[in-house]
Every structure is written in C-alpha cells, then in structure tokens.
C-alpha cells in the first residue's frame, strides 16, 4: 500500500513538474529564469511585472472569452449531432446502417490535417474566414463522438427503450430523456476530451484567424510571443498560465463529479 502511494506520488510529481515549472517561471524575473542553478521557489518575486505586462499588452480576457465561445460551441454541436447519431447506429434498425457505421469508422482514420486545405478553401469561398463559424463549424460533427456514444449506447438494455416507448416517448424524447442521462460517464469523458483538445488547438485557429478579434487562447500566447515578449520568458510563462487557468479551474471544480460519473454506472436490474 505504502509502496503504491510512493509510486503514484512519484508519477504525479513527474506529470506536474512542467506545469509547476511554468507557474514558478511566471513569477520570476528573467535573470533568475536563466540562472544555471535550479530552484523552484523564486528569490525575487516578479509576478506583478510579468502578469502586468501580459494583461497590459494583449487582450487576455478577450482570448479566454473566444476560447469559451469556440469550445462551448463545438461541444454543444458535437453533442447535438453525435448523441442522436450514436443512438440511431446503436439501437435503431434501418437500411444502410452498416454502411453509415462504416463511414464513421472511416472518419476515425482521417487525421484532422488532411481535410484542412479543402475546409479552408470552402470557408474562404463562403467568406467565413476570421469568424467564430470558421472556428466551430469544421468540428461540429465528430466521428470519434459518434463512435464513442454508439459503443456506450449499445450497452443500454433494449427493454429500457421499449419501456420508454410504451410510456409514450418518441425517439427524440428517448434520446434526450432516457439515453443521454444514462450516458453521463461517456458524455463527461467526451466533453473533457473535446474541450481540452480544442482549447489547446493551435493548428486550425492559426489557419483561419488573422487578428486579435477571434483569436483563441493558444493563438493568443503565440501572438504575445511574436509581437511583444521576444525573449521575455517570465511574461510568456505568465501568459501561458493565464490561458491554461480556466481548464485547470474547471477540472478542479468538477473533479468530484467526473469521478462519480465514471464510478457509478449502475444500470443493472
């Protein structure tokens, strides 16, 4: 038991180290960051200076708001499309179901960089470049989400759905009132996955966004580096801390729920 805790603690420290290093560097003056000796705790606090520089020079709150809009929009539409699609593929019998599911599996194999060019051309052709739509639309249909929900819904007992139909629910009601509430673990797992990957995504925003107006947090850090900071690593780390802060806070607040959601899958009986 004690050995297990020691191993877990060691692994935890390993995983946390880069983040701690970033936080530490964000409150150090540049001279201290580049010193040859290693120390986490700063001798001289430069937090006000570093964070002040970031907040004064780039619209941090605006980037964060963009991140919330983009990630929230993507997640909303992904759930809106993937939950009914997963339900239909798992539980309804219709001609072409096998082909449709095959297409989803095929979609899983395509890396997101492959359709980037055609999507860019399409967005440009429709005059959508540098807009929330361009940031959200390409990700609204997630093959991974459909696959994940389809697998999860397959395990739901058919009798539960039959009972719902006898109780007077239509298929649409069944999806949102019976299937989704019983798929919280899958929905939470997917939400974490989706929000984290799009919050941190740099590739697509870099392609379709040109100014500060629609820049996402990751792009904001990049702008800050190229335009303002130069080699001011303290300020850059401060920018990075600010951009990752919402995700960290969201996880800490919801941690208990996530774990509960994954631990209590009591559908038996």
């Amino acid at each position: 038991m004690r050995a297990r805790i020691a191993v877990l603690a060691l692994l935890g420290v390993l995983v946390l180290m880069p983040y701690l290093w970033m936080v530490a560097a964000s409150v150090k003056p540049v001279s201290e960051i580049f010193r040859a000796s290693l120390s986490i705790w700063p001798e001289q606090f430069a937090a006000a200076e570093n964070y002040g520089k970031v907040l004064a020079r780039v619209p941090v709150l605006h980037y964060l708001w963009n991140g919330v809009v983009v990630c929230g929009g993507i997640l909303l539409f992904q759930l809106l499309f993937a939950v009914p699609a997963g339900y239909a593929l798992a539980k309804l019998r219709f001609p072409g179901r096998g082909i449709a599911f095959g297409a989803v599996m095929l979609g899983l194999l395509v890396p997101p960089h492959v359709p980037a060019l055609p999507l860019y051309v399409a967005a440009s052709g429709m005059g959508l470049l540098d807009s929330y739509t361009a940031l959200i639309a390409p990700f609204t249909i997630s093959a991974f989400a459909i696959f994940l929900f389809r697998q999860f819904f397959s395990a739901l007992p058919d009798d539960l759905l039959h009972a719902a139909r006898l109780d007077g629910m239509g298929e649409w009601s069944i999806v949102w009132r019976v299937v989704l509430p019983n798929a919280w673990p899958a929905a939470t797992a997917f939400a974490i996955f989706s929000v984290v990957s799009h919050w941190n995504d740099l590739f697509w925003p870099l392609i379709v966004v040109q100014g500060h107006e629609h820049a996402t947090p990751a792009l904001g850090v990049l702008y800050f580096r190229s335009e303002e900071a130069g080699d001011d690593f303290g300020a850059m780390m401060a920018a990075a801390v600010l951009m990752t802060l919402p995700l960290v806070l969201a996880f800490l607040l919801a941690q208990r729920r996530f774990v509960e959601g994954i631990a209590t899958t009591g559908l038996k009986g």
Binding site: D159, L160, H162, A163, R165, L166, M169
Partner: peptide
C-alpha cells in the same frame, strides 16, 4: 399502431426502470 398508441402497460423481466 405504435406501442404508445395501443394503450397497454407492460412489466418487463428486467424491470426496465429509468435508472436516473
């Protein structure tokens, strides 16, 4: 007719209660 329109109630072997 669809199940809901048949005006019947069914009790399932697995109970089929809504867990949530």
């Amino acid at each position: 007719l669809r199940p809901a329109e048949r005006d019947i109630a069914m009790v399932f072997q697995s109970y089929a209660l809504y867990p949530h």
